[in-house]
Computed example of a mutant assay.
Amino acid sequence: MKKILLAALCFLLAACGSGKNDNVAETIPDTTAVPKQIYATELVSRGPIAIDSSVYVIYPLPHDRAQNDDDSGSFLSSDGGRSITFWNIVFYNTATKKYHLLAENKKMIINSYNTSYSGSEYSSDSSAPVHYFPDTSQEGNYIFYSIIAEDVNKDGKIDSKDPTYLFSSDREGNNLKQISPRGTNVNNWEVVKKSGMVLINTQRDSTINNKSYEAPVISYAYDLKKANGPERVFSTEFNMATDKLYKGLWPVKKDK
């Protein structure tokens, strides 16, 4: 009887001992050499982010100098914090294992990259585009970007005092091009999918520098198929006729 009890006790102890290791994951050592420095591509705050149903994913590269560099993409958000901006984006082909940057030799601050084919949900004002975490863009064959890329006010840096332009690329991250007029700040935009037209509302860069939001809004249309450059939506003749009609219907009352 003692032998039976001893055997049963040994069995229970063995069972308990084996159970302790059931959920222990095997440790796989990192055999890569430890770098002497941290590289820019290792400072990835978001990603990998899949682009539609393709084999591509993106790794946005945050502008880590934003809080201590005067020449930076540091922007105050509506809650007083600093919104995340990016200085480039890596496109990675998971099938071929090849990768490339969105722009090889372009200094820029990427405020957002968008998938919804609409820029009406954000504001590009002089204090800073109010962004949470930007969304990816995958609809159709284009990705749209809100980018500051030119020192328009000639103060020796690119920042929120310079205009925000609208850029586009294909969904593989190639053929990056500016599609909004130079020297104008993009307020909002919309893509009409059936016609392939991008409608862009802008204001002159002086609006940014003077922090005045009463400057006239100029509407442009960009044809994604022709890619000839943005054109004004309304003609001068139409603007003059409409202005005359408005002033006639709603005359300014003179003070008595």
Score class of each variant (00 low, 15 high):
Gly173Thr: 06
Tyr165Pro: 02
Pro134Ser: 09
Asn88Ile: 04
Arg82Asp: 00
Val192Gly: 02
Ser137Lys: 10
Gly80Ala: 06
Val152Cys: 06
Arg171Trp: 00
Asn188His: 06
Pro129Tyr: 02
Gln138Cys: 05
Ile148Asn: 08
Tyr165Ile: 01
Gly81Trp: 12
Ser120Asp: 13
Ser78Thr: 07
Glu139Val: 04
Thr96His: 12
Val90Ser: 09
Thr94Asn: 08
Val186Cys: 03
Lys177Gly: 11
Lys193Pro: 00
Val186Asp: 02
Lys194Cys: 06
Ile147Glu: 04
Ser160Asn: 04
Asn141Gln: 10
Lys161Val: 01
Ile158Tyr: 05
Asn68Arg: 14
Asn68Pro: 09
Phe86Pro: 03
Val191Tyr: 08
Ser72Tyr: 11
Gly183Glu: 09
Thr136Arg: 05
Pro134Phe: 10
Phe133Cys: 02
Tyr142Gly: 02
Ala103His: 12
Tyr165Cys: 05
Glu172Arg: 02
Val186His: 00
Tyr132His: 04
Ile89Ala: 08
Lys97Cys: 13
Glu104Cys: 04
Asp125Ala: 06
Asn105Phe: 09
Pro134Leu: 04
Tyr142Val: 09
Asn111Leu: 05
Ser180His: 03
Thr85Val: 02
Ala128Gln: 12
Asn174Leu: 07
Ile148Met: 11
Asp151Glu: 03
Val152Tyr: 05
Ser127Trp: 00
Val198Thr: 01
Ser180Gly: 06
Tyr99Thr: 14
Ser127Glu: 00
Leu101Ala: 14
Thr136Phe: 08
Asp159Tyr: 02
Ile148Arg: 03
Gly183Ser: 07
Thr96Tyr: 14
Asp155Gln: 07
Asn175Asp: 13
Asn68Trp: 15
Val191Trp: 10
Leu166Pro: 07
Tyr122Gly: 01
Trp87His: 05
Ser123Asn: 08
Asp71Leu: 15
Asn188Thr: 00
Val130Met: 01
Ile148Tyr: 09
Ala95Leu: 14
Asp70Ser: 15
Arg182Cys: 08
Arg182Asp: 12
Asn111Lys: 10
Trp87Asn: 02
Tyr132Ile: 01
Thr94Val: 15
Ser83Lys: 13
Glu172Cys: 02
Gly173Lys: 11
Trp189Glu: 04
Asp79Thr: 14
Glu172Asp: 07
Asp135Phe: 01
Ser120Arg: 13
Tyr92Glu: 14
Asn188Arg: 04
Asn141Trp: 04
Glu121Leu: 13
Tyr145Pro: 06
Asp70Ala: 15
Trp87Phe: 11
Leu101Pro: 07
Leu199Glu: 01
Ser74Ala: 15
Tyr165Val: 03
Asp69Cys: 07
Ser74Leu: 15
Lys157Ser: 14
Glu121Trp: 12
Asn185Gly: 11
Asn93Asp: 15
Ser126Thr: 10
Lys193Gln: 02
Arg171Pro: 00
Thr115Phe: 06
Asp71Thr: 13
Ser116Met: 09
Lys157Thr: 13
Met108Leu: 11
Glu190Met: 02
Gly156Glu: 00
Gly119Asp: 01
Asn88Thr: 06
Gly156Tyr: 06
Ser112Ala: 14
Pro134Thr: 12
Ile110Tyr: 05
Gly183Val: 10
Gly196Leu: 00
Tyr113Lys: 01
Tyr122Phe: 15
Lys106Ser: 09
Phe167Tyr: 14
Met197Pro: 01
Tyr92Gly: 11
Asn175Ala: 12
Lys194Val: 07
Tyr92Met: 14
Gly196Pro: 04
Arg182His: 13
